[in-house]
Design a protein around this nucleic acid. Structure first.
Lengths: 348, 348
DNA sequence: GAATGCAATGGAATGCCTTTCATGAAAATC
DNA sequence: GATTTTCATGAAAGGCATTCCATTGCATTC
């Protein structure tokens, strides 16, 4: 039967090295109880024949699939793509995760799943059945979806929740949103700002809440009023415009605004320009995320860098090693404030 | 033997529907010779049990793996990532390809391969052995690597070459680089420019050559001199600076410059600003690629849009359908000129 | 009415690797 | 020196879906 075959299989290697399949398997998987000289002989044959095991067969025989699945929100991903607004988190995610996966012989597969869909678990369930991944990475807002975490718990598939600070099953990995927001706020306070507005992110993102909280705490700690200075947003450019307008229509208006992502910060900047407010002279702006676009605005934006690549890299490592050390939980991959030209002391 | 099993397998479905495995298989794969009522019965069971075939098993039994492999240059990818300069081609590639793959039940896997490496084929060969993809997409500069195309030909794996205009095996898919460059050039000529400089891309990219060629032909067609007006670059910001300096040091200097990518256009813009040249008053600039950053410069850049997502979408479709229609070869997914604020008639 | 062809279905083999179990040999224990 | 462990290795049994081949039952054809 002439089916499409693998060119070199484990039995070729076994034959070449003069040992049984199982011994070759043991060598491949670095198992104990193989004599060093035997191991060397097998490795030489593997090298000679350029043998690489088929992950399909490895998966079939009941062990690992060497696949890590990353679940993204379809709507968010596609709309950001369409908008072409330089949302480079896909890049960062892919590369941070991919490089680390590759180091361990794993591959990543990306999947878009609808959030606003009654069948999220069914959809995910099908993907799991098809792929049988060794680990799953959930990105917001899926990270907080109890239907999904429950499903993964039942299936006993290790998973990581990106951008989640809430405890629970799976590895929660976050950037320290509250701390980062506080840091940004303190930076502005240090410059002399007293009225600092905050544009919140989409409420279905757990981290939105924490960013607000960090700002609020920093304000309180400095003895500053925050009443009315936090306005809602949903991460979109449009919502950022509305929020910025609302803040700048206050009397007195804030002298600085922190936006929960770059899109809304860009919107704020545009509003400032439209109102002939000098940035940073009349209004200081800090954004979250630090995507590449903030370096090409005038002025360049001071931003809280979100270490997406590092976060995914960490997620992959946790999944592969499954190092369940609850003490470290949730895992912190801290963000950092990148100072650029959009922040300065306020004019009085 | 309690191994890690698939919860629902084809035999469960067969049992539930009261048919044999093979009939279920036929239904799954949409094969002929199944009575409609039988097909309906099987489909009902599949639906009821939430059955989804395991791709590992599908691959094992000798047919398709439902995987498409995308080969990227490690160096280029990582350096652009590090530089964080808004190179959104990864986004575009991922999404354009992923959405189309998903529509057909396929998945994409990304792989970084070193170009400047003696073992390119060996590395790729190993990946193929492990994954056994149904199709492979090569991105520049791998698209032009004869060692790779030879390997894939031997293995009889269908592949697409992105950004390649040269005939040969596999599907060559390009954006019509010469035509796009000509279009950009004609746009400037139409505005009244006579001295139009061109910054070429890295010479190991086939398309670099064609972009220059398009410009050259448009110049010739309009009866304009091009001698000395084309300077080398390698797609990096630094090389763009050098190239822009070289062009602007000419006497007489060009009144317009076309850069072969956005990075070099940004460099040109920076040089213009440093020299107090008004853009577009003193110097018009057109870039290639149209990544998001060109919308955040001052002024926004007129750019040739490279339809990366559409190109990958096309590549995936060709691979899946394997529609070998040599007449269409090489396939064109045309770019288009997006006019923004960096082009205007020259001052005399 | 017998022979032929084809549609519809089932049976069995097969792919490549790991896991489980068994075996023989060497090392450790008494 | 005999028995029990431990180590090193091999044999065989899957896993899940497909491919190839065989069979049944029917509609054509002569």
């Amino acid at each position: 039967m002439a089916r499409r075959n693998q060119s070199v299989t484990i039995s070729h290697v076994a034959a070449d090295a003069g040992v049984s399949l199982q011994t070759v398997s043991r060598v491949i998987n670095n198992e104990p109880n193989v004599r060093p000289e035997m191991k060397a002989r097998v490795q030489a044959s593997i090298e000679k024949l350029h043998y690489v095991p088929s992950i399909a067969a490895q998966r079939m025989s009941g062990s690992r699939s060497y696949l890590i699945l990353v679940i993204n929100d379809r709507e968010r991903t596609i709309s950001e793509w369409r908008a072409r607004r330089g949302a480079d988190w896909v890049d960062q995610m892919l590369l941070g995760g991919m490089l680390t996966s590759a180091e361990h012989g794993y591959r990543m597969i990306f999947e878009l799943v609808d959030t606003h869909n009654d069948h999220v678990e069914r959809e995910l369930s099908g993907t799991i059945a098809a792929l049988q991944p060794d680990g799953i990475i959930l990105t917001p807002p899926h990270s907080e979806n109890p239907l999904i975490t429950k499903l993964l718990d039942e299936r006993k598939i290790p998973f990581a929740r990106i951008g989640s600070l809430s405890p629970g099953s799976g590895f929660a990995i976050h950037m320290g949103d509250a701390g980062s927001a506080a840091q940004a706020t303190q930076h502005l306070i240090g410059l002399g700002h007293k009225r600092i507005g905050f544009i919140a992110g989409a409420p279905d993102y757990n981290l939105s809440h924490w960013r607000v909280e960090g700002w609020r705490q920093a304000m309180a700690q400095a003895g500053l009023q925050d009443a009315g200075l936090c306005v809602p947003g949903d991460f979109s450019y449009e919502s950022g415009r509305e929020a910025a307008l609302a803040l700048l229509n206050l009397d007195p208006a804030p002298t600085a605004i922190i936006a929960s992502n770059d899109q809304m910060a860009l919107a704020t900047l545009d509003i400032a320009h439209e109102r002939n407010l000098a940035v940073p002279g009349d209004l200081s702006i800090i954004s979250f995320d630090n995507t590449p676009v903030v370096r090409f605005t005038t002025p360049q934006l001071t931003a809280v860098d979100q270490p997406i690549a590092a976060t995914f890299s960490k997620a992959v490592e946790l999944l592969i090693h499954q190092a369940t050390s609850p003490s470290e939980h949730p895992y912190l991959v801290p963000g950092s404030l990148v100072e650029r030209a959009s922040t300065a002391p306020p004019k009085f």
